[in-house]
Simulated assay, not measured.
Amino acid sequence: MSISTPGGPERRPTVVSTGKKPAAGRPSAGAKAGSGKPAGNARTGGKGPRKPIAPVKVSQGRSWGPIALFTAVGLLAVAIIGYGAWATFQGSKPWDDRADAINGIVNFRKSDKSLVEGGKHQQGAITYAQQPPVAGPHNNSWQNCMGDVYDAPIASEHAVHSLEHGAVWITYRPDLPADQVEKLAAKVRGNEKLMMSPFEGLDKPISLQAWGYQLKVDNADDGRIDEFIKTLKVNASIEGPTALCNQGVTATGPAPRDLQPQQQ
């Protein structure tokens, strides 16, 4: 459409752009009609839908540290429970069965029953078949056995009477090293129903005696010493647990002392 102005030539109308986008569904002026390609995606740079990314699997090894720790704790618990059950079972056994279970112990109660008959008091020196003696006739007076550590030999006749009362008598060679002697003394010193003294002519460095029982070992570190004491102290008595260990002879020397008043 042309617009004429009076007295001048015709002018074409000026097209003013409004800046508005074409309506939806209408192709833009620059688009190629009939191209058939979908419009590009702004996120994919116009290359179409993005393919899904597969997750990367990270291989994780087992944590062996905690597993080893739990295993060790479990084994320790089992060991503790097992030892407790074993100790309970052992403690429930009769003392004489526990004594027979000590490796190397000699039970004269089985081999010589007449030897362990009590109450055979006799004056003067007595000859014993066992050295040191474990039972048999003995002096009226017992050796004091209130944890006494004698540094010289004592009379066997008094010591055997102490055994009859339930004492354990530890003897050792006079040439036993001082540190070994002290280890033995530490077990004895101050403990009722125990005594120790050197003894000439032992065929083993250390010999332990209870009434009717004997155990010989090579050194004071042998664990059987504690087992012997624990099992036989008091238990081996044929006079009962109330038999005295005090008020006995405290003198040393191999010759017995004939003190008449003591008859128990």
Rank of each mutant, 00 (worst) to 15 (best):
L115H: 13
I170L: 11
P133K: 00
K204N: 06
T250P: 08
Q263S: 05
L215N: 03
Q209W: 00
E239G: 04
Q262M: 07
P137S: 07
K187T: 05
G45V: 03
P205R: 01
K32M: 13
E200W: 02
G212K: 00
N144H: 12
I238R: 00
A220N: 05
I3A: 14
D96Y: 08
E192V: 06
Y172C: 03
K187F: 10
Q60V: 08
A129R: 04
V15N: 04
V15L: 03
V106A: 00
P153L: 11
S114M: 14
W169R: 03
I80D: 12
L75A: 10
G201T: 06
R50W: 10
I225V: 15
G7I: 09
A125W: 08
A255R: 01
P13N: 07
D222T: 02
R224G: 04
L232E: 05
A99R: 02
T14A: 08
V149N: 03
G45P: 01
G46E: 12
Y83N: 10
V149A: 10
P205H: 06
V188L: 05
M1S: 10
A251S: 12
A29I: 04
D97T: 05
T5H: 14
A236E: 02
A159W: 02
F108G: 05
L76F: 15
N144V: 14
P241S: 07
A236I: 06
K230S: 13
A39S: 15
V181I: 12
N41R: 04
V181N: 02
P38E: 06
N246W: 13
P9H: 08
K57Q: 09
